[in-house]
Design a protein around this nucleic acid. Structure first.
Length: 641
RNA sequence: GCCGGAGUAGCUCAGGGGUAGAGCAGCUCACUCGUAAUGAGCAGGCCAGGGGUUCGAAUCCCCUCUCCGGCUCCA
């Protein structure tokens, strides 16, 4: 048979040749790294005979697809180990995921930490035995018999049966011992011995099929890589992420805290964190002003009837704090969003097309009753402040407005050191409100604005909110993690619900579009991500203390105060340490507090009106004239505007 | 909310039925020093909260709260 290789060449192989045979014919190194192949676009086991002529690509162990194969195989070995050690256990599903894999089990008793060690040891034995993964196909009827004891597998077989896919009554399974077989589409490693680096990480509860009304299973998470080195690097990345964790750096750098007395998810910002927040807020206001927004302010409470009109009581109640009964029949709710207030500002006057677009912006503090298990530091709090804006525009303005909002968001994110963006365009879901042609206009114009901004994006069909399509912008942080903060959403509902109108040039009544947009998302989450992105070492313009002045000895205090005054006059935030500690200790404190610029003053400096300058990550420069240092630091501390 | 783990000084942690320990941070004193930890002393705790078992509980048991890892959800 004839196999076309990735380089376009065609080679002749005997019937029944496998992907491994083809890989070996190309070269031994490739064959050693191969974990599977892609045959005519379909992933295929390395040792499975190829069915005839076709194009073949080799999937190597370090590629994304290869790691997927490795992790999926690791999941099978995990299941085998668990079924060996826990005869009453039954297994559900075990996919490969980002960086690893998991498998879900139903067991009599939840796994204990030392169970995980035993399971890991058993996996090591299975790997040492180098059992082959043997693929087989069977009818769903036979599969039902083989897996009769495993109720979740039977349920999976049932859904295969119900599906309309061609050949839907045949399933594949992989067997690596007489005792262990698992339903699986594949492909897998040729044998268990090819799993070279894995580690079980933790156990957690997880609902069967992700449905909280169904049985909760025990999920074991693990990670697997193509080599011990890659595994080590991954574990190091995890440690690095832990070191940057904003919940750890927050208290260390005295930025914020979550006093128990306040309740879960409610933070207080300390002076240092508050100073950084002020920089973010100031920048937000500058940017909003530049992009043509006006500033509004709304209260934290409103009558429940407002939330009934807006629809929040229908679709958002479980996230709202319970009502406060005032006088008879007068009930209030704390706001979970600012939109209805801005809508009322729009509605406060008869609007003409000449008023549009009307762009309203607010740093609006909102409170959402998040379920206790989901709270996560500043990244998911119960009280937070959104840099919220609502733009009201006519249909013909929508395209330009969306493009402007996207430009705003991208420019905002770049100012905070994010360069790598991806967007999701979420389109009309099954349950939606509004007219289809408005949806289509909005979706088309969102897509056009993304294309114009040259942002890579994916369409998430049906993932839009019921009230309109949206763009979510994801950024990649310094250690490669993705965060979603900014969002641009078109809304058809609120203008309807509040019956918003404007008078058109033809003296008709038009209904405006409404665009919700948050650039930072919430100041809390944005700040939390920034802390982790910068590992607490904020760029100078944001740093709570921009310059630390340190004395060599007590007799330099007066000169240090003079230098500090000069720096403050230049607009810099300065902290002086003229304590009696040793110089090294004082420098160390400034460095661990991530102060970006350190000035040291001693005898020479007093004599020559100079300072020793030490910038973050650079060597010290002694004898810099004070005036030069002030000028230079002033420049370095300039904000992005 | 659910499953699992954990709460001992401001922080990081040791102790594990017989009356509370270290390092760092803090305070005081000495030292006056040129770029990542000077020395000594002092102070600091209802061992998360409540209930139980016991002659005796930080320690064992039960309940609650909070935090951590997930599930679900999300700015």
């Amino acid at each position: 048979m004839q196999i076309t290789l990735p380089d376009g060449s065609v080679r002749e192989f005997d019937a029944g040749a496998t992907g491994l045979d083809v890989a070996e014919s190309i070269g031994p190194r490739l064959a050693a790294a191969a974990v599977a192949v892609r045959f005519n676009g379909v992933e295929w086991d390395l040792t499975r005979p190829l069915p005839g002529d076709g194009a073949l690509e080799v999937i190597t162990d370090s590629s994304e697809a290869g790691l997927h194969v490795i992790r999926h195989s690791a999941a099978h070995i995990l299941a085998q180990a668990v079924l060996d050690l826990f005869p009453h256990a039954t297994f559900a599903i075990g996919p490969a995921i980002q960086d690893g894999f998991y498998y879900d089990f139903a067991v009599d008793e939840p796994f204990a930490p030392d169970d995980i060690e035993r399971i890991e040891s058993r996996m090591v034995e299975i790997i040492a035995e180098d059992q082959p993964f043997v693929r087989g196909e069977m009818s769903t009827a036979d599969a039902r018999e083989i897996f009769a004891r495993h109720r979740f597998k039977v349920e999976i077989i049932d859904t295969v049966d119900e599906s309309e896919v061609a050949g839907g009554d045949v399933v594949s399974a992989y067997r690596n011992t007489e005792a262990f077989i698992d339903l699986c589409r594949g492909p897998h490693l040729p044998s268990t011995g090819r799993l070279k680096a894995f580690k079980l990480q933790r156990v957690a509860g997880a609902y069967w099929r992700g449905d909280e009304n169904r049985e909760q299973l025990q999920r074991i998470y693990g990670t697997a890589w193509d080599s011990p080195k890659a595994l080590d690097e991954y574990l190091h990345r995890l440690e690095e992420a832990e070191r940057r964790d904003h919940r750890r750096l927050g208290p260390e750098l005295d930025l914020f805290s979550f006093p128990r007395e306040l309740g879960p998810g409610l933070a207080v910002w300390h002076p240092k964190g508050g100073m950084v927040r002020k920089q973010i807020e100031d920048h937000s206001r500058r940017m909003h002003e530049r992009f043509g927004f006006e500033f509004v302010v709304s209260p934290h409470l409103a009558r429940s009837t407002l939330w009934a009109t807006s629809g929040h009581l229908d679709f958002y109640t479980e996230n709202m704090y319970p009502p406060m009964e005032m006088d008879a029949g007068d009930e209030y709710r704390v706001k979970p969003m600012s939109c209805p207030f801005h809508v009322l500002i729009y509605k406060g006057t008869a609007r003409s097309y000449r008023d549009l677009p009307l762009r309203l912006s607010e740093l609006g503090s909102v409170y959402r009753y998040e379920r206790s298990g989901v709270i996560h530091g500043l990244l998911r709090a119960r009280g937070f402040t959104q840099d919220d804006s609502h733009t009201f525009c006519s249909p013909d303005q929508l395209g330009d407005e969306l493009a402007m909002h996207l430009e705003f968001v991208l420019s905002w994110l770049r100012d905070f050191g994010f360069e790598d963006f991806e967007a999701d365009l979420s389109t009309r879901p099954e349950k939606y409100v509004g007219e289809v042609d408005r949806w289509e206009q909005a979706e088309r114009q969102l897509a056009e604005s993304l294309a114009a901004a040259e942002i890579q994006y994916e369409v998430a069909p049906g993932e839009g909110a019921f009230y309109g399509p949206k763009i979510d912008i994801h950024v990649k942080d310094a250690i490669g993690r993705r965060w979603q903060m900014s969002t641009i959403q078109v809304d058809f509902t609120l203008p309807e619900r509040f019956d918003l109108e404007y008078t058109t040039p033809a003296n008709d009544k038009g209904r405006p579009f409404m665009i919700h947009s948050a650039k930072a998302g919430s100041l809390e989450r944005f700040f939390g991500v920034l802390v982790e992105h910068y590992a607490g070492a904020f760029p100078m313009w944001m740093a709570p203390v921009q310059v630390g002045v340190i004395t060599v000895a007590d007799r330099h205090s007066e000169y240090a105060a003079h230098a500090a005054a000069e720096l403050r006059r230049a607009g810099l935030r300065v902290e002086v340490d003229d304590g009696s500690g040793k110089l090294g200790e004082k420098v160390r404190r400034m460095i661990t507090q991530k102060v970006p610029a350190i000035l040291v003053v001693g005898d020479d400096d007093v004599e020559h009106t100079t300072v020793g300058v030490r910038l973050r990550g650079e060597d010290e420069q002694r004898g810099t004239p004070l005036a030069d240092a002030v000028a230079k630091l002033g420049q370095l501390a300039a904000d992005p505007s």
